[in-house]
Design a protein around this nucleic acid. Sequence first.
DNA 1: TGTTTTGAATGAATTTAATTCATGATTATC
DNA 2: GATAATCATGAATTAAATTCATTCAAAACA
Lengths: 305, 305
Amino acid sequence: MLELRHLRTLIALQETGSVSLAAERVFLTQSALSHQLKQLEAYYQQPLFERKTQPLRFTLAGERLLALARDLLDKVASAERDLARIRQGEAGELRVAVECHTCFDWLMPAMDSFRQHWPAVELDIVSGFHADPVGLLLTRRADLAIVSEAEPQAGIVHQPLFAYEMVGIVARDHPLAEKKVWQAQDFANETLIHYPVPDEMLDLWRKVLLPARVSPLRRTSELTVAIIQLVASRRGVAALPFWAVKPYLERGYVVARRIGEQGLSSELYAALRSEDAGLAYMQDFLSTVRERSFATLPGLTVLEG
Amino acid sequence: MLELRHLRTLIALQETGSVSLAAERVFLTQSALSHQLKQLEAYYQQPLFERKTQPLRFTLAGERLLALARDLLDKVASAERDLARIRQGEAGELRVAVECHTCFDWLMPAMDSFRQHWPAVELDIVSGFHADPVGLLLTRRADLAIVSEAEPQAGIVHQPLFAYEMVGIVARDHPLAEKKVWQAQDFANETLIHYPVPDEMLDLWRKVLLPARVSPLRRTSELTVAIIQLVASRRGVAALPFWAVKPYLERGYVVARRIGEQGLSSELYAALRSEDAGLAYMQDFLSTVRERSFATLPGLTVLEG
DNA sequence: TGTTTTGAATGAATTTAATTCATGATTATC
DNA sequence: GATAATCATGAATTAAATTCATTCAAAACA
């Protein structure tokens, strides 16, 4: 018999395009999902996907179920928001402190969506770049901070959002384009183009260059497009989230390369005061961010608490 | 985490008004449902019903989930119909043979609903009362017959619809109104008013009067209201489905009494040719009949295959 | 006002179902 | 054509749902 669990799987399948990735997305093994899909197809006595292809393709029947899934899960989310409001009221304050430039890309759509669902919650962005976003929480000048490390701290809890890969980008005809994988040394004789933020907020700096004691020339820019433009004009190299550069890759302006054998992974957490962790609108904000981000940004991976 | 199973339970709860009856409706024990509801309330951290009352009352949060349930389960049904059509086409023929008068009461709404969902299926009623409705199936003059006993027969399968109680009705000031429970003997000196059908199609006759060799005076009428009217005017007594007389009981025209210590139970099955049992529209017709009937007729009970 | 009946709750035992593990098969990739 | 990567499968395991046996609470009855 059909359950919501099955529909959640279908959504993950569509968003990831493969059984293994979908499994990871819903915190199950590939095997579990394979069994689950087999069971579904047996129940409806017809195939729901063609697995021979990458990404997998839904059959007509599969598409129909997928449409059902989207419809139903939206409605469930909406009902659960109502229950949360019934339980503990609908008003509150949610000031978000952001320390990364690219965060705005996914934050804005999520905030839009949230604003519609919780009109009585005062949603705001604490602007400017702060060395210590968690300090803003403790001094009550913000209620939620987006951070890239979950450093334990009294009175603060960290809720995982998602992880993604930072890739090195360079002009197509630049010598580094020949290397599949870059190491710290490869940056030594380049100009690194990055956002104007403190060094410790740059993942590349913290995790790659600093440990290897490599310090390339630097140049900064506020805007992602500007950085891409500089890279394309051979003014330097940069490290950016894969999902942020993908559109430019497809147009061929620049090429992307892995940094380090395992790739350079970037993680994002929401930090909030422990006392606020139970607030319904707070939890819903986090769900919204995750849901919207996974649905729209390519290549995200889940991040365990 | 919420699953459709929970929503199916909520619907059953509303339709029956009690945990025990709802449990029977969804083929589980009372205990199972009690655990399930406890889990649900723990998940949403708030009560969903007040149990102190009979029938139980939903809280605001409960009502919200119930609305979700109705919405979602409708959509699931609709999607599953689409899948069935994708699998095996949407056209066909469905001629229904009916042997009981009251059947029309629940059959018509179900047929209306079905017609909208399967416009390409030719739906028809084989009119007139036939001594052998199953014969109509074998000679292909009907595709589905509503019968009250599942007599095994080659090439025919019986699918349970539902069961209900037949009650004796009598005028308020008639002596029999004093007796809580009627026995066969109580009919001996009464005039029995019934539909004009062969005796073996009258449950009261088959199961009560014939075994006890009691044969009261008889009088027939085609219409339920007319029978009620005759009973109210002290022209006799009748035995009718509880759900059919309930509205008249509430207006006080007549009173209803149990027949036999255990009550006189009536069962309904759909008989169809074995080869047709797998047809999607056939199965959907049966689901529709059950679903609509349970939702609208009071006092129905489930009937196991 | 007991007494009996009925419906719901609870904890432990059980059954059922979902999930993982280990591995083989299949399909992409270079 | 070799080598990953992805998916499928059966058995083992784990987790979850359900039942069983009982208690508790409330309502109906005498």
